[in-house]
Each structure stands twice: as C-alpha cells, then as structure tokens.
C-alpha cells in the first residue's frame, strides 16, 4: 500500500513548506520533510538501538517520551522515521504516518504565546489540516542540535525558497491528496 497524503495546499504566497505528518500518540506531529530520510517498519529497523539503513546509521531516540506524550504501544501502523541532516541523524517511532503535505507559509501559525514552557523549544508552530491540527516539531530539537533563534522563520523560509526538483529529501513518496491521507500499514524506504 502506498503512502498517500501529498497535498499542495491552496498556495497563495508561493512559499510552501513540505511536512511529513505522523501520529505520535493521539497527536498529529508535522516534521519538516526535507530532513526525512526514510520511513521503515519495526521489523526493518531491528531491535538494536542503532538503525542502519542505506549505509547510514540513525541513533534511536524516544521522541514520544521527549515530547512528554507518554509510552507508545506498537501496532501494525507503527513506523520508524529516519531523520537527519549533514550534521546529525536520529530515528524515532511514530504511531502512524499520514503522509506529506505542502503547506503555504501563511498557513503556518506560530505557537501562541500563552504556551510558555519547554514546548516552545520542541514545537515551532502549527497548521490546520482538513480534519486535524498538526503541531510542527522543531527539527533542531528532534536532532538534538543547538537551538536556533527564530527557528521557525529561518527554517521555513529556507525550505520554501527551494524550487521543485531542489527538494533535498531522499524520501520518495507517491502523491495523493491531503484529504485522503490515512496511516499506512506498509513501510517506505529511500
């Protein structure tokens, strides 16, 4: 079964950011997609703390725990996301993958200032899908890299300035519409 869920949102500004939307517990979490290196099953990941895939190693991290979402039960929908940039890579478990979504920059809302705690380091903002609200994970925090000031602006604009074909993720997924996005039972790899 292919991964469905690649939607170009009603773009108006021409600045679009691509996210991979996944379920972590009951929460929809969006990961800036150009650092997604692959999505694999638990069986493909193996039991070790280090995932080796396509000649690259990805240290396992308990993302749900770090997000303070709590323990995860593994199901047929559980996947391991391989995430990394030139400096660092990590792998982490999610409870399902909905798909890729292209979001116009203007539709990305920063985390409201009433959120004052550690969540401001973990989350860059949010956007509304048709049927859900997705929280945008801070990719620097995911990779345990030093925090960046104005990470949202720096990251989003950098990503949105890429042209089609310059997308640097090694992830290759089939396209579908955002509305159709459903968790996929099959693994995907680069």
């Amino acid at each position: 079964m292919s991964l469905r869920g690649h939607k170009t949102a009603a773009a108006t500004s021409g600045q679009t950011v691509r996210f991979l939307v996944a379920l972590v517990g009951p929460i929809h979490v969006a990961f800036p997609a150009h650092w997604v290196r692959g999505i694999i099953t638990l069986a493909e990941a193996g039991r070790e703390g280090l995932v080796t895939w396509a000649n690259s190693s990805y240290e396992r991290t308990d993302l749900a725990g770090r997000l303070t979402i709590g323990a995860q039960m593994t199901t047929a929908e559980t996947r391991i996301i391989l995430y990394g940039n030139d400096q660092r890579s990590r792998s982490f478990m999610v409870d399902g993958v909905l798909g890729l979504v292209d979001v116009d920059r203007s539709q990305v809302q920063p985390l409201p200032p009433q959120f004052r705690g550690g969540e401001r380091d973990r989350l860059l903002g949010l956007f509304s899908g048709t049927a859900y609200v997705a929280l945008i994970a801070n990719p620097f925090w995911v990779l345990e890299l030093p925090p960046r000031k104005n990470a949202l602006d720096a990251f989003v604009f950098q990503a949105s300035e890429r042209r089609a074909g310059e997308f640097d993720s090694r992830l290759r997924l089939s396209s579908a519409t955002h509305e159709d996005a459903v968790p996929t039972p099959a693994g995907h790899k680069t």
Binding site: I27, T68, Q114, F115, S128
Partner: peptide, 24 residues
C-alpha cells in the same frame, strides 16, 4: 487538540474560524 505542554493549565488548542486558539 491536545498539545504536549509544560505550561500549567495550557495544554490544548481549539479551532476558531481559520486560526487556532490556546485553551486555558
């Protein structure tokens, strides 16, 4: 929508029109 939050009593969002509001 739940938000994993450390802020006391602020741990969710609701949709209002095209935006999302924090919930106390």
């Amino acid at each position: 929508t739940a938000v994993p939050s450390d802020t006391p009593f602020v741990a969710a969002l609701v949709r209002q029109e095209k935006r999302c509001l924090p919930v106390f």
